[in-house]
Nucleic acid binder design. Structure first.
Lengths: 351, 351
DNA sequence: TTGTAAGCGTTATCAG
DNA sequence: CTGATAACGCTTACAA
């Protein structure tokens, strides 16, 4: 007794048989290779034949086995995205900025017809970048803080043939995509000067492995010098959570004797920490002290006052990462690497 | 002239040849199947042989082709995670709660030896759940807001053989995992009563497709009745962003004449909106009005005052999702579906 | 303990 | 335009 939809009981006895392109071929009355071609949209197949094949495929609820297809093609149609966390850090505490980037990267990959394989890696035991060799993906996007230097050492030493692109690279030798940090920092600094602040101090670092921080400091310094002012850097302490760095830097600045009436923090998380500390110390933001951050994290909208910040275009960021990778894979020339930014004026700078 | 590492020029002329298990076999002086078994950790292979194979594999920098392996095995070792967004919503504006969940789900899958294929879906054109039929994944985890009813309709109608589990299901008929909403809401309400608030109003809904909201309201109502108090619900308007719902509900409550000295919001985003509105209206939080939310989103730590909230254990959440799915795939009995929660006391309730 | 050989379900080449 | 047929690189009976 054959198994039929009306008689599912019979199915149990029979070995489960996956619907293959052979089955479709039989139903459509064509050869198996014609099925493959028809479904793949090959131009050489006549329209009536294609319709018959499609009908048969639908009737049987056929779907191609991607593993077989990929084995044969030698390409996976998949991009790997590696999220680098701080060692031992809870996934929940990952900077939300990176999550936004993950989202837009997935969207961009999907728009280009690629699947996305995601993994979170934080320590030498979990570092793994052999997606290509294992034919799990055609290329790799690495997103993460430069702080995890062990991670970058690992990825930097992968086979030269590895196709990969990154956000957050500590070295310009990698294939990177980044915010337009210089323009953003300049924008932030000018904004404060225009709003009447005259003693703008930068909270950040020019030596952090976080390459972006140096660029942001440079943009700030350039804008200050343009205005005939002396740039001042209040350094953050290494190895602490960002908000704590901001808090401590604000406290240090307050007691340093250094006159200031505004700060440009090289990241939102640092800015939020500083904001908290200024509030605790009784400074009125934005009247007494203006604060501008960088990144556009969501939490900035909820602080008191809400944080004025520089926000990269996340959608473009994901697109640039994916396009840079695909171009590298194809051996094509350079694609844009700088993500445009915009000033988001909220409440931490005075009108 | 053969291609050698010392003589890479020769490689270019030769057709690129992937290193296969045959090559390893040749170098190790064994058969190809022995290579496969040795590398897979098969117990029947003698230790000396295994060592020889491993050495050869390392020498050749061999990595198994996962596509071939999967084609043969018939299993993918991959789980698909579908993130459902609101239609047309920017990836950046996705509730950060879901991102945390994504992170912990990836971590849990990895701990169980699975890869994770992630996709973001928001509208009928993008809905797609045939990972199993296409042999792209062995099962699927769907994470998202119940609000996108079209999405749930779609996933609800997939083939019965589909292995999938979800967070945010509008129906109990699905395989769901959820926060322990009842316990959490009770915890929140009792906390406010203990802190001396007596007129606690719930901002939320008992009819939202967001199943969780009903459960949270029920927990609140039970705690109130336990204390001999009448539960009061201030309904949110449908179809708005959560924070806007919170803002409007707070405004409506303030002008309704309904006496209140605390609110329990069924989500943090709603609570944050309400907090803003209370501030705008000149209410002092937490002295005049206490506020407690639900979800433990990061932004709550940055509001003024910081938001007291109920936080699910994200790590457990990811683990339960993955374990529920794996159990369903194996046809195993029930696994826990409720994620434990804890009270996080911050500044929006008085000491 | 190891070797031989049969697939897994496609895509791609080559005829016709 | 369509049909045979040969890979793709592995895992896994079955033999030895």
């Amino acid at each position: 007794m054959p198994a039929t939809p009306e008689n599912p009981g019979a199915t149990a006895a029979r070995r489960i048989h996956r619907v293959t392109s052979f089955d479709v071929a039989e139903v459509a009355g064509v050869s198996q290779s014609t099925v493959s071609r028809a479904l793949a949209g090959d131009a050489s197949i006549s329209e009536p034949t294609r319709q018959r094949v499609i009908a048969a495929a639908e009737k049987l609820n056929y779907q191609v086995d991607e593993n077989a297809a990929r084995l044969r093609r030698g390409k996976t149609g998949t991009l790997a995205v590696v999220m680098i966390c701080r060692d031992g850090q809870d996934r929940k505490d990952l900077n939300p900025f990176y999550y936004s980037l993950l989202g837009s990267t997935c969207a961009a990959a999907s728009a280009r017809g690629y699947e996305v394989l995601v993994s979170f890696q934080d320590s030498p035991e979990s570092f793994w970048g052999h997606y290509q060799e294992r034919r799990k993906a055609d290329g790799m996007i690495v997103i993460g803080t430069s702080e995890n230097t062990a991670a970058w050492d690992y990825f930097g030493e992968l086979e030269a043939a590895t196709n990969w692109v990154c956000w957050g690279a500590p070295s310009d030798a990698f294939q990177w995509v980044r915010s337009d940090n210089l323009a953003g920092a300049t924008l932030a600094t000018r904004h404060m000067l225009v709003r009447g602040y005259t003693r703008v101090v930068c909270i950040g670092s020019e030596t952090s492995p976080q390459r972006q921080f140096k660029e942001r400091y440079d943009g700030y310094a350039a804008a200050m010098q343009d205005a005939g002012l002396e740039p001042v850097l209040q350094r953050i302490e290494r190895g602490l959570p960002r908000e704590e760095q901001g808090r401590r830097a604000a406290a240090a600045l307050a007691t340093s004797g250094q006159p200031f009436d505004a700060i440009f923090a090289v990241s939102d998380e640092i800015a939020l920490g500083a904001l908290k500390e200024f509030e605790r110390l009784g400074y009125r933001v934005p009247d007494q002290v203006g604060v501008v951050g960088f990144d556009g994290v969501r939490a900035g909208a909820w602080s008191t006052p809400p944080l004025t910040t520089i926000e990269p275009d996340f959608e473009i960021a994901g697109t640039l990462l994916v396009d840079r990778l695909l171009a590298a894979m194809a051996g094509e020339p350079e694609t844009p690497r700088r993500v445009p930014v915009r000033l988001v004026v909220r409440g931490s700078t005075r009108p």
